[in-house]
């Protein structure tokens, strides 16, 4: 199945980003295709490159960067991002900023869209 994932909450404070990541890993293992990930609301904070968690904690933005490296389209909403000071130059690599139209596109292209939020 072709899946898209929407993340609505920021990293560490909330589990949404972890749950989304874990679902993606499990889905890939089962042979599903991940069409894209869309970050919205405080979810846009998940992919800043200045994140530096303690060594024994998971590195959330690196996880998303690595999924992007695999060719999964990782998109940060520009409206939600700009409002919060999330711009291209503070983002990790393999991630792009784009409009809400990308979310609409993911809905059109995917068999399922799964939302992780509060």
């Amino acid at each position: 199945m072709k899946l898209s994932v929407v993340v609505l909450e920021g990293p560490y404070t909330h589990e949404a980003s972890d749950s989304a990541y874990n679902l993606i890993q499990a889905a890939l293992k089962k042979g599903h295709e991940i069409n894209g990930v869309f970050f919205y609301h405080d979810g846009v904070y998940n992919v800043t490159k200045f994140m530096e968690p303690p060594q024994d904690d998971r590195h959330i933005s690196r996880r998303w960067m690595e999924l992007g490296e695999k060719g999964i389209d990782i998109v940060v909403c520009i409206a939600a991002g700009l409002r919060r000071g999330i711009v291209d130059k503070i983002q990790t690599s393999n991630v792009r900023i784009s409009g809400l139209g990308q979310l609409a596109k993911m809905i059109l292209e995917s068999d399922r869209v799964i939302v992780f939020g509060d």
């Binding site: 609505l8 919205y40 609301h41 409206a79 939600a80 409009g99 809400l100 139209g101 979310l103 609409a104 596109k105 809905i107 059109l108 509060d118």
Partner: peptide, 19 residues
């Protein structure tokens, strides 16, 4: 919270995509 305000932005965009 901003949830409803940003949900509105999603509604308007999705509606524009003929869904």
């Amino acid at each position: 919270t901003i949830y409803v305000q940003e949900a509105l932005e999603v509604m308007l965009i999705v509606a524009a995509y003929s869904m």
